[in-house]
Computed example of a mutant assay.
Amino acid sequence: MKRSVGQILGRTGIRIPLILWTIAVLYPIFWMFLGAFKSNAEIYRNPWGFPESFSWQNFIGAWNNYNIDTSVFNSLFVTVLGAVITLVLAIPTAYAIERLNFRGSRFLFTLYVSAMMIPMVLGWIPLFFLLMKLNLLDNIIGLSIVYAVSQLPFTIFVLTSFMSTIPKSLEESAAMDGLSPYGVLWKIITPLSMSGIITVTIMNAIQFWNEYFMALIFLQTQENYTLALAIDFISSEAQYTNAWGTLFASLVIAITPVIILYAIFQQRIAKGMTEGAIKG
């Protein structure tokens, strides 16, 4: 009986802080969703309550008056292109490091892992001038390339963990059947590493979609703004135009795809990261 009471108290002591932390995290998001359907008068009159009537006017205003549609397209473009470039560069590199025992392969892997420890902020100024030299400044393609390069070390680190446990006998059998090294990579290794590929792609996509600082530095015209920059612009405007409902609506537009994506792939992400940790 004493053990049961102790277990109950122990579990309660663990759960109460977790419940409080969950409320602290979820309530501002819930409040933001409510504010997106309120008029400005309702936000000032009853900021913490439910809207009197759910209206889509704030979403329409954000879409039409602040060009959120263009910013959504820009964010979607840099997210997809950045994720694709990252995979195109990371998969062959991870395979070469893990499977091709060339001189310096371990040093190269250590170099990539070490790059994960370097703050990206240290490269912003050189990248700014490099993009300017290449005529890629204020260009969403240039921003996509920067995003892809910034996530290469992490992606390579995860993919090498998955590739390390694929039996080499599969590659040897495929080579004996006449499959070229590129065929082995794309037809054998890549499908067997799909769990890790999906995991890093989702994590990279969420990172690219939410990224703000590099977009702020490398994008200059409003037509090229990503969603994070557009929301920042609306936030500064809201101080003078009282467009708080429009700001909340823009935040809902930005956060909804991330919530849906994570909700759909939550188990796959957790499974992929766990497998990568064990295999590494």
Score class of each variant (00 low, 15 high):
149 V>Q: 00
43 I>F: 00
267 Q>S: 08
6 G>N: 14
200 V>L: 03
72 V>E: 01
103 R>T: 01
201 T>Y: 00
259 I>D: 13
79 T>M: 07
189 I>F: 10
280 G>H: 05
202 I>C: 13
62 A>I: 00
207 Q>M: 08
36 A>V: 03
227 L>C: 06
105 S>A: 01
229 L>S: 02
256 T>R: 09
142 G>H: 05
225 Y>V: 06
126 P>G: 09
29 I>D: 10
271 K>E: 14
104 G>F: 06
124 W>Q: 05
230 A>M: 13
263 A>S: 14
209 W>V: 04
267 Q>R: 14
220 Q>S: 15
196 G>N: 03
75 S>D: 11
132 M>A: 00
182 Y>S: 15
59 F>N: 05
141 I>G: 06
258 V>S: 12
103 R>E: 01
28 P>H: 01
76 L>H: 02
22 T>G: 11
231 I>Y: 04
169 S>E: 10
218 F>D: 03
18 L>R: 07
230 A>N: 14
220 Q>F: 10
132 M>K: 09
228 A>G: 02
67 N>A: 11
2 K>F: 15
9 L>I: 14
241 T>M: 06
172 E>A: 01
67 N>Q: 08
182 Y>W: 14
266 Q>M: 13
90 A>G: 04
224 N>R: 06
226 T>S: 05
225 Y>N: 12
114 S>T: 07
32 M>N: 15
209 W>R: 08
276 G>R: 00
148 A>F: 00
131 L>A: 00
252 V>F: 12
38 K>D: 05
105 S>H: 00
271 K>H: 13
233 F>S: 13
93 T>G: 07
36 A>C: 07
81 L>Q: 04
198 I>C: 00
244 W>N: 08
177 D>A: 11
234 I>S: 03
278 I>N: 09
5 V>R: 15
130 L>G: 01
26 L>I: 14
211 E>M: 06
170 L>M: 12
63 W>H: 02
38 K>T: 02
113 V>N: 04
160 T>N: 09
199 T>N: 01
55 S>L: 13
237 E>I: 11
243 A>M: 09
269 I>W: 00
20 L>V: 09
247 L>H: 11
183 G>I: 05
42 E>Y: 14
110 T>Q: 12
274 T>S: 12
132 M>I: 00
